[in-house]
Design a binder for these strands. Sequence first.
DNA 1: CTTGACTCTAGACCTAGATCAAAGGTCTAG
DNA 2: CTAGACCTTTGATCTAGGTCTAGAGTCAAG
Lengths: 141, 141
Amino acid sequence: MNTHITSLTIGAVAKRVGVAIDTIRYYEREGLLPEPLRRASGYRSYDEGAVRQLRFIRRAKDLGFTLEEIRDLLALSADRHRGVKAVKKRAQERLAAIDERIAELTRVRNGLEQLVEACPGHGSPEQCPILRALVDEDAQS
Amino acid sequence: MNTHITSLTIGAVAKRVGVAIDTIRYYEREGLLPEPLRRASGYRSYDEGAVRQLRFIRRAKDLGFTLEEIRDLLALSADRHRGVKAVKKRAQERLAAIDERIAELTRVRNGLEQLVEACPGHGSPEQCPILRALVDEDAQS
DNA sequence: CTTGACTCTAGACCTAGATCAAAGGTCTAG
DNA sequence: CTAGACCTTTGATCTAGGTCTAGAGTCAAG
């Protein structure tokens, strides 16, 4: 519960969150982070809220959300009550997209595995099922 | 076994393989396709071998190989005998990379699923496990 | 006060894999 | 012969998510 007033430079924020300074400025340009206060010198001045928001962005990115989707999530999370429903919907959509991607990769994976297993690893290229599958239409499983 | 002499324009090749004309020229620039013969007019003149090679590239790409890896595969496939071993090795590496990617996606997927299941879909943002997980470090499973 | 680390802006550049535009030459059906 | 489809080149543009540069100003330690 350490809510004392802090004033962090962009470098300090970057270090805390583990992200590059340029990335923070980039997120600001892209509307993912609000424009921070400025010192007299023009230096950006951040507080803990900015650190939290930046961590939010990074975690959402780790879950595979695009920056555009994250912008949307941030807007929704600011909407007390009504936002929750929409956030859940976005998460479900993301989950479905991941499932689809996994299924697709699994299909490719299994096809490739069959080829690898069938390949003796020596002999002429004509006998290699991997090369045959790549060259001949009809050699596909 | 239709190996009669054919001469195809780039457009005809593109249509047969189902790829854009620009993509064929791009592959040529990138060294994935040999420079074709030219008519007196300068038009590229392709034969069935080029069509086969282009299909090879497309199939390999569908299996998740990058264009750089495909360049390598093409070189290997030209090596009668010794190439087969290396091709199998590349395919095994590709398979391992896909497995790793699937495992990673599955981890993310399961984490996200838990959050979705725990979210009531209404109420205040503080009660939404999805938002909590994104905001708070310690709310992570 | 000096030095070195930090920050500012605007804008260029990067990867991968294409895709498009402009300005012009060629080919073919009618 | 002409319309219109097709082809040529060079070079720019796109997506996504940053990363880097130059030139200038600021801050903190000693």
